[in-house]
Write a protein that binds this DNA or RNA. Structure first.
Length: 909
DNA sequence: GGGCTGGAACAAAGC
DNA sequence: GCGCTTTGTTCCAGC
């Protein structure tokens, strides 16, 4: 069975818990580095290494998290002070640098840093090397960047990057100080590990942006120019830009809500948005928007400046400069504000306001220079690779309608293949619950990974804006850290609900991406993605609550979609070790000869046990398999054991791993119906739990943009409805293997195990991710009384996987630590912050968000200590978890303290 | 005529 | 180094 893939899995990180803070989290490391300087290398390495490191990290989700978020030294009290740290942390030093007061200086600085990692071509564009780009590719790249061409400029990216860096944000934010604290949380959430993120990380981002392009080389390799450039895909971006600076082209005006000429069928948001409203936030917006725009444009501007942006790009940019950022054609509607330049997170935060967008742009556009200088603004918005919760306080971002599991992405050389659809034939639907304000918000959408690792922007896929008669939702493309982000208005009139019929998926050539400096991801067989939605809600106290919800995995490869088996749901997540019960698997591409293999892996990825389950051929369907749960190798387990299973249609045609938990035979079986709500797939009788293994990362700290503190604080409290899943949690995956398909869930391992006991269980970690969608709830959110603060809540729903797994725990613990109480400096809880608990679990979204939501709603989050799968378990076990948590927390705290002390020492030195 | 789609040819990468 | 298989990318054709 061991295939390369598996080997990859082996990755599993064995990070020791002890390391957590520092080691575990690359971020931290990086940070340190930066701080200390030394390690810059490390940082760089991180980047470059990218996944490798990350992976490891990832594997330990916890670590990752810690690192990135909270733990980060910053998180520690000590950390706070030095902004530097923050900076350091990033993969992109640049970003950090930028934030620093002296921009220029910083910039250079960055570059320097980058240089280490990669060459910094200021101009280097976005994800592709301009030079390298084949005509087609250029388009594509543009498409990606699309409008972007303008974006391509390196600057732009940098900016983004900076923003991205989680750490930075804190600094930036006025309240930043606290940010540091937030960091602590952060760790939990967004694992620094995240490939991209991590310093090294995100290949895309970092790589693309800055370094990028190894490019040239690639160019050659990659098909140079595809004739097709003209190809449709790209077309979208370029051709369609309608907005030129000129007001005319520009539609900013359109953005204005009222103006929207074309009423969106649903009441385009525009309508709702009033100028006033726009104005209201304008200032903020403006700044952010402008910045963003600038960034985007900047590139161009830079180019103009002579930096070497490809002529094409320049033209585009010039012509459209504003455009790039602003595209908003859809429907002619003006989304307005949203569209704007949100590139930056900031933008996103801001409510859609026309001003920000329009005003800023219109005015600015013409001057390249104006754009040219991206201000260093520290957007506090969390980087795209940060793991964010789907629920926080009263807010909950939910994917009401999940996208289909398959969507053939188009190449730049092709025409668009349309918007991602929902299984029902409609389109995905996203809704923000709990938002009672009258101000419209911007919903951000980008294409993220769907592997076991932490959720991060996908290096090989970009969201593609779809426009036309059939598109009712206005949207705007922005580029953030080399990742295309589609901005969609969320209007109160529409109940903060958006139908995502304006988003397609663009495939970038592997060769173009892999050659970029710093890129560590492999495109081959890395064809699964998730739609990631984010919304940033400004709070009266100045803080910003950022929520994220990720869709179920979407297979984007034509061939894979047709051949690879895909498990979307399973009727049972756990069962006694005796096995024997039948489980219904729902999905696609099942064959009469499909085999279902149960596998148990050690933390290091080695197979401990593997057995083929009996498949009921009589009930075979291409979309459903009935399998008999094989007895576990050890019938006397005293605690839940998490294993994985997959469907195999033949050599190299395996589904992703799904988690399954064997329970102690003595344990009363509790149904795991929570998922019932899952309904759909499950329909067949067995309730199916959705959950792709990779699922979604569930936990995520909330990242308050505004405040550093917030971050910390950010805990998010349980969300009432939390249907949402945590989008982010990564599963930690061992992965890495280029072949995403085989994600070994197991890898997680090392994450900090939450519970001491679990700590070492590799697999456990994974659980976290999986924790299904429950609402994040609960960890300890003071805010929500209802929820008990247990350390580990699991989202019930989806994730059955948890059982036994600490993974979840792992995270949780951290969270806890991070929580004010626990971690000393780190988190003070943020008072006003939405969630008190810094981290939120991400609910899993899994498959059907709807499900998750429903589940969540229907049943309050339960704490499952062991994660046993379902809620039921939770019920029974409740207490343990707490104890464990406590213990875990203690351990974690200890670790953190140690870490902090060491950090402070470093700093002082 | 353009946008979507589905299918498949061609070619590179892996095994 | 060769041949077969797998996967990625580009083209074509039809709706």
């Amino acid at each position: 069975m061991k295939s390369a893939e598996e080997d990859a899995y082996s990755y599993t990180p064995n990070v020791s818990l002890s390391l957590p803070l520092g080691m575990g989290n690359p971020c931290l490391a990086t940070q340190y580095h930066t701080l200390q300087s030394s390690p810059i290398i490390s940082v760089s390495s991180c980047h470059q290494t990218g996944y490798g490191l990350h992976d490891h990290n990832n594997q330990n989700p916890a670590q990752g998290y810690y690192m990135s978020h909270g733990l980060r030294p910053n998180g520690a009290p000590a950390l706070e002070s030095p902004r530097i740290e923050i900076t350091a942390y990033h993969q992109y030093p640049e970003e950090e640098v930028e934030e620093s007061s002296s921009m220029d200086h910083l910039v250079h600085h960055k570059r320097g840093l980058n240089s280490i990692v990669t060459l910094t071509l200021p101009n280097a564009d976005g994800y592709r090397d301009p030079s390298c780009l084949s005509p087609a590719s250029s388009l594509s790249s543009r498409s990606c960047n699309s409008d972007a061409s303008s974006y391509e400029s390196g600057f732009y990216n940098y900016d983004n990057s900076s923003q991205n860096s989680p750490w930075q944000s804190p600094c930036v934010s006025p309240k930043s100080s606290s940010s540091l604290l937030s960091c602590p949380h952060a760790p939990l959430g967004p694992p620094s590990t995240s490939p991209r993120h991590s310093p090294s990380t995100s290949p895309l981002i970092g790589a693309q942006a800055e370094e990028g392009w190894v490019g040239q080389g690639p160019c050659g390799s990659s098909r140079p120019n595809s004739p097709a450039c003209s190809g449709g895909g790209g077309s979208v971006g370029v051709g369609k830009r309608k907005y030129s600076f000129n007001g005319t082209t520009y539609r900013q005006p359109t953005y204005s809500p009222n103006q929207s000429s074309t009423p969106s069928p649903r009441g385009s948001p525009r309508v709702s948005v009033t100028d006033d409203s726009w104005l209201a936030n304008t200032n903020q917006y403006t700044n952010s928007a402008i910045v963003a725009a600038i960034n985007a444009l900047t590139t161009d501007g830079l180019v103009d400046m002579g930096e070497g942006v490809p002529v094409k790009a320049r033209k585009t940019n010039l012509d459209h400069s504003p455009t790039m950022s602003l595209k908003t054609e859809p429907g002619g509607e003006e989304m307005g504000p949203g569209s704007e330049l949100l590139q930056e997170d900031h933008i996103s935060r801001l409510p859609f306001k026309k001003e920000s967008y329009c005003g800023g742009f219109l005015d600015v556009p013409q001057h390249p220079y104006s754009w040219s200088k991206p201000k260093p603004y520290l957007s506090s918005l969390p980087a795209l690779d940060w793991q964010l919760p789907s629920c926080s306080g009263p807010y909950s971002l939910q994917i009401e309608m999940q996208p289909k599991s398959h969507h053939r992405a188009h190449y730049e050389t092709e025409g668009s293949r349309g918007a991602v659809k929902a299984p029902s034939g409609g389109h995905p639907v996203v809704q923000l619950y709990g938002y009672m304000e009258s101000e419209p918000l911007t919903l951000q959408l980008f294409i993220g990974t769907a592997d076991d690792r932490l959720l991060r922007p996908h290096a090989f896929y970009q969201v593609h804006r779809i426009t036309g008669k059939t598109v009712s939702t206005a949207s705007h493309e922005a580029l953030q850290s080399n990742t295309k982000v589609l901005e969609i208005p969320l209007l109160p009139e529409n109940n903060m609900r958006a139908i995502i019929d304006c988003a397609g998926i663009l495939k970038l050539r592997n060769s173009d991406i892999e050659l970029r400096k710093g890129e560590t991801d492999i495109g081959r067989k890395n064809t699964r993605v998730r739609m990631v939605f984010r919304v940033h809600i400004n709070q009266p106290n100045g803080r910003t609550i950022s929520l994220q919800a990720s869709s179920n995995p979407i297979e984007c490869s034509q061939r894979s979609a047709q051949e690879l088996p895909l498990i979307e749901k399973q009727s049972l997540d756990s069962y006694p070790a005796t096995g024997g019960k039948k489980i219904l698997l729902s999905g696609h591409n099942f064959l009469p000869d499909s085999k279902v293999v149960f596998v148990e892996k050690a933390q290091d990825g080695h197979h401990l046990w593997e057995t083929e389950a009996k498949v009921d051929k009589d009930s075979f369907k291409s979309t459903a398999l009935v399998v008999e749960i094989p007895p576990y190798r050890n019938q006397r387990i005293s605690s839940p054991v998490q294993v994985n299973f997959y469907v195999c249609n033949g050599k190299r045609k395996r589904s992703q791993y799904q988690r399954f938990t064997y329970l102690s035979p003595n344990v009363p079986i509790i149904k795991t119906e929570p998922n019932d709500e899952y309904e759909p797939l499950g329909a067949q009788g067995l309730s199916v739990h959705s959950k792709l293994y990779y699922g979604q990362p569930r936990l995520t700290p909330i990242v308050p943009v505004g405040d550093a503190d917030t971050c910390l604080v950010g805990v998010y409290s349980p969300c009432p409805p939390c249907h949402g899943s945590i989008s982010s949690m990564p599963a930690s995956s061992p992965r890495s293997s280029p072949t995403l398909h085989d994600l070994s869930p197991v890898s997680y391992p090392k994450c900090l195990s939450t519970s001491p006991t679990h700590a070492h269980n590799g697999p456990l970690a994974s659980a976290i991710q999986e924790t299904p969608g429950l609402c994040p709830a609960p960890l300890v959110c003071p805010s929500s009384p209802d929820q008990a603060p247990q350390g580990m809540l699991h989202s019930q729903g989806n994730s059955p996987h948890h059982l036994g797994n600490p993974s979840p725990h792992g995270f949780h613990p951290l969270y806890h630590n991070s929580s004010p109480s626990t971690s000393p400096g780190s988190h003070p809880s943020t008072p006003g912050g939405a969630a008190e608990s810094p981290f939120a679990q991400a609910p899993d979204y899994s498959p059907t968000q709807g499900q998750s939501q429903t589940q969540a709603r229907s049943s309050p989050p339960s704490l499952l200590p062991v994660d046993a799968s379902p809620r039921s378990l939770a019920v029974t076990v409740k207490r343990e978890p707490q104890d464990l948590d406590q213990m875990y927390l203690d351990d974690v705290n200890e670790i953190i303290r140690n870490d902090l002390s060491s950090i402070s020492v470093h700093l002082s030195t």
